[in-house]
Design a protein around this nucleic acid. Structure first.
Length: 296
DNA sequence: TACCCGTGGCG
DNA sequence: TCGCCAAGGGT
């Protein structure tokens, strides 16, 4: 028996879906994968220009794999979480070397790629290859928490119960399940939003457990804030910005200028090197990674 | 598991 | 104003 949410959500999507470039029929699996990496924790509006630039420059996984990882980091710009750029380059390299340059259509093989976790593997398999997978991102989890579970927000980390709920809500046929996956995600992004849900515009408001219960306030544990100012993350961001904008090796002094606390600055730089985002090229000289073996 | 990892816009 | 939030992954 189909889930009661399916038809109204799919019909709503047909009328309200945003016209996003990675959803067009000619978008390749690689294009879908690039979009998914960029969209991890990053709003669509900021992804759009970077996505276009990347697909133009690196239209296939092999094209990216044949370029330096540092170029991927540079082209990532200010999207944030630059390790994603490195992992996307690593995924492209694995696709070139292990999959003949073709994005694998198998969930397990996708999951084995760097930077591809449970969500991204399911998303690529569903969106690009039209397979049936539970695609559980923050939007879908929130929609199901509200409509099915009657709570304002899902738990902090994905639970087995959520997976069960998501699987139960999935249409049986592959193609329909794939449409459902993108539709319920879009509903979460546009209507069933985190802060101010637009229940008046929701196609399933009449059957939403949370709304029917009077929208009880979130009662779970407090969600940890993401403080930023003064953290290592901010310092890393400033250091990497210098390296991105400089086309070539950068002397230590240029890096020292972005943060005056030396202990934290050194820790942040060491972290970037450990993550492979920065390469020491000589004593006190650094650059974005070339992909060449590190010389001692 | 809890925590770390960027960046910017919005209510 | 400033905390919250944004298509997560790795360890």
């Amino acid at each position: 028996m189909p889930h009661a949410l399916n038809d109204p959500v799919i019909a709503w999507y047909a009328d309200h879906a945003r016209d996003l470039p990675w959803r067009t029929p000619d978008a390749s699996a690689w294009a879908v994968m690039v979009s998914e990496f960029m969209l991890q924790q990053t709003p669509v509006s900021r992804v759009l220009p970077m996505y276009e630039a990347w697909l133009t420059r690196w239209p296939t996984p092999t094209a990216l794999a044949d370029d330096e990882p540092g170029e991927a980091v540079r082209a990532w710009g200010r999207l944030g979480y630059p390790r994603r750029a490195l992992r996307l380059h690593g995924a492209a390299t694995a696709i070139r070397d292990r999959h003949k340059g073709e994005v694998p259509d198998d969930h397990e093989k996708l999951l084995a790629l760097p930077g591809v976790g449970e969500y991204t593997a399911a998303a690529v398999a569903s969106f690009a290859f039209r397979q049936r997978h539970a695609v559980l991102d923050t939007n879908v989890r929130r929609v199901l928490a509200r409509t099915v579970d009657g709570t304002e927000y899902p738990p902090q980390s994905t639970t087995a119960a959520e997976r069960r709920t998501a699987t139960d809500a999935m249409p049986l046929a592959d193609e329909t399940a794939a449409t459902w996956a993108v539709a319920v995600m879009e509903l979460g992004a546009l209507v069933c939003t985190a802060r101010t849900p637009r229940c008046a515009d929701c196609p399933v408001a009449a059957m939403c457990a949370w709304r029917l219960a009077g929208k009880p306030a979130y009662a779970g544990p407090p969600r940890r804030g993401q403080t930023y100012a003064g953290t290592d993350r901010q310092v890393r961001g400033k250091l990497l910005a210098v390296l991105r904008e400089a086309h070539g090796p950068v002397p230590q002094a240029r890096l020292d200028a972005v943060w005056d606390e030396p202990v934290q600055r050194a820790r942040a730089l060491d972290g970037l090197v450990a993550d492979g985002l920065v390469e020491p090229v000589a004593d006190g000289v650094y650059r974005l990674p070339t992909g060449a073996p590190v010389s001692s």
